[in-house]
Amino acid sequence: MTFLKTSVAKKVAMALSGLFLVLFILVHLAINLTLIYPGKEAFDAAVEFMGTNPLIQIMQPVLALGFIFHISMGIYLEWNNRSKRSVKYVNNNPKVASSWASRNMIWTGLFVLLFLIIHLLNYFVPFKTQEVSDHYVLVTGLFKSPVYTLIYVLAFISLGIHLSHGFQSAFQSLGTPRQKCHKFIVYSGNLFAFLVALGFSAIAIYFYFN
């Protein structure tokens, strides 16, 4: 138990939960892309699979726990870290030494959380509680609202920024050999972050205009 109380173990837990959520985003993006190509039939089949496959049903509460853990631990660590410097600098110039993304993980994360809540209310709750006849219509219909589409795009840009630091940070927390892998991890993390932001946003913008 003393292991779990240490600051390093908490970072490892953030890294593992973050990478778990990365896998979820990958699956989600793959399903969403079927909205555009191949199209409605493939998307409906994917929704049917996600709604009925026993393994996915088991993973659903695990995923929810992953989200709850990553979010609550992230907020706790941010609050705890802020308490470690009671007297602030009068003149501080952090941008010379670190990236905006790395310093603002809490804000990009909280913005994604805000979107997550909207997304659950708009899509997941009706999906679970009501008889939705046509998921394709429900999903694409939401993108007719300019406000929803704007929030959606901003949320995924925010997630992209979050991932640009989070992805490589996770591997650093897990102690991957930095000299060998760091560049590869940073490049692949940035590429993944960019593709997630671009992929989700492009789908939303496509259906807004079509």
């Binding site: 970072k11 870290n81 030494a97 630091h165 940070s169 927390s173």
Partner: peptide, 18 residues
């Protein structure tokens, strides 16, 4: 060393690289 680091009231690393 990590136990003492935590007990002394330092924050945790978020890999900003600063």
């Amino acid at each position: 060393m990590i136990a003492v680091m935590d007990a002394e009231g330092f924050g945790s690393c978020t890999n900003t690289g600063a």
